[in-house]
């Protein structure tokens, strides 16, 4: 019965727990109920469509997806069922040209594109810097500045399938549109309860800690170099199926039909092994190949200077 009563007061007590979303909770407390749920938007033609959404798992075990806000971006958003709505950092909002009306609590975004193809139109977001974003960004997670939180009002529109062993989630559009977030009753600037202020202070602690231990450096991501050879698996090992004309391999004298015996001294028994043996080659690196021509008994070596491309 208690549940039933609670259900009748939607949006009364809006809260976030996700990444320790105390500030969200504080925000939520300012939210006031509206007169019943709003009528649902017309049926979305995307209902039933499944999207394969690439994600990234941070060192802190948070799931990040990329979004474009009104075509600008991409921005990194935390997938957070503990957040009641969509939160966009002030910096990301600025980059996206999103003008937050100082009088209005929520800002409407015309178009939100999720990497993988899902699109949300005319969604309400809160432009704000929840402390956990400030704190996490201060620590400098590798390659992942976080620009916002993707909470209930976005996620509930999809059936979300998350397999940590796969590199993408599957989001299937449901015929369910969560009600728009309500306007706040109180001044958004009202002070949250003391405990929440204490939690919020953690953002500051994180920044302080970041000063002490140093910001974690960003990973340097480098493209691999390319030789321009197509390989296949033959009975006697790896065969150069084709050398792309004008490629580094062609210039170095690798020929179609050559058997590839070693890459940088490492014997290769399959095309996949050969690719792995060259996995850290950078453009400009010289790669030593041991080859045997069709019908030849002797091996010959061939030094190929890797080029750019893939």
């Amino acid at each position: 019965m208690a549940d039933a009563q609670i259900e009748q007061r939607p949006w009364r007590h809006r809260a976030g727990l996700g990444t320790g979303l105390a500030l969200v909770l504080a925000t939520a407390l300012a939210a006031a109920p509206e007169d019943g749920p709003k009528p649902e938007a017309p049926r979305d033609p995307d209902v039933g469509r499944a999207y394969r959404v690439p994600y990234r798992l941070t060192a802190t075990n948070h799931f990040l997806v990329r979004l474009r806000v009104n075509g600008k971006g991409p921005f990194n958003f935390l997938v957070d069922t503990g957040a009641p709505a969509i939160f966009v950092s002030t910096e990301a909002a600025k980059k996206a040209g999103l003008k937050a009306d100082p009088e209005a609590f929520w800002t409407t975004v015309g178009r939100l594109d999720v990497e993988g193809g899902a699109v949300l139109r005319d969604v309400k977001v809160r432009v704000e810097d929840p402390y956990q974003l400030v704190g996490m960004n201060a620590l400098g997670l590798p390659g992942a500045s976080i620009d916002g939180l993707l909470g209930f009002t976005a996620l509930a529109r999809f059936r979300i399938e998350l397999d940590p062993t796969k590199d993408r989630m599957t989001w299937t559009r449901l015929a369910f549109n969560p009600p728009d977030p309500p306007a706040p009753r109180r001044n958004p600037g009202a002070r949250p309860p003391a405990e929440l202020q204490a939690m919020n202070a953690l953002g500051g602690v994180a920044k302080f800690a970041a000063v002490l231990i140093g910001r974690q450096p960003e990973d340097v991501l480098l493209p691999r170099g390319s030789l321009g050879m197509e390989l296949d698996d033959a009975a006697n090992g790896v065969r150069v199926a084709r050398v792309l004309p004008g490629s580094p391999a062609a210039k170095a004298g690798v020929r179609d039909g050559d058997q590839l015996v070693r890459v940088n001294g490492r014997p290769v028994g399959s095309a996949k092994e050969a690719r792995k043996a060259a996995a850290s080659v950078r453009p400009g690196d010289v790669v030593g190949l041991s080859l045997r021509g069709a019908g030849d008994q002797a091996e010959r070596s061939c030094d190929v200077t890797a080029g750019e491309g893939f």
Partner: peptide, 12 residues
């Protein structure tokens, strides 16, 4: 900072 090489899984 770690240096990571992004190795394409196939030839384009």
């Amino acid at each position: 900072a770690r240096r990571l090489v992004l190795a394409p899984g196939a030839l384009f």
